[in-house]
Write a protein that binds this DNA or RNA. Structure first.
Length: 103
DNA sequence: CCGGTGACTAGTC
DNA sequence: GGACTAGCCACCG
């Protein structure tokens, strides 16, 4: 059986390099409002390498948290070409990746 | 801007 | 196996 966590991991793993998504999007895609659950699952991420959860940020483009610390998360994102300022992704909307089509 | 509330899962006890 | 707790959030006042 595919658990909730597995679905999250699967979605996140589909985010292309240089792109980001939000916890909300994942929630919408999985048709749930369990935003916090998603965060908790990521925090316990047993697939830290396989699942690039550093590409998942808050709805406002703020970094949020990361198992290895926000600094590490920022590093990884910057390494993919994103610009981070004050813990926030500059022009994050340009990098947004939607799992489902939005108008 | 801060605090409280909501919704949901996986772990732990 | 039931109950409790924590969590990388979102939204509203």
């Amino acid at each position: 059986m595919i658990g909730f966590a597995a679905q999250c991991y699967q979605l996140v793993s589909k985010i292309p390099k240089g792109k980001i998504s939000t916890y909300k999007e994942i929630g919408l895609t999985l048709n749930t409002k369990a935003y916090r659950s998603i965060g908790r699952i990521m925090a316990k991420n047993p697939h830290l390498i396989d699942v690039p959860c550093h590409r998942v940020v808050k709805t406002d483009g703020y970094i949020g948290g990361y198992a290895l610390g926000m600094m590490k998360k920022i590093e990884l994102l910057q390494d993919e070409g994103l610009i981070i300022k004050n813990n926030r992704i500059v022009n994050y909307k340009n990098y947004m990746f939607y799992f489902i089509a939005k108008h």
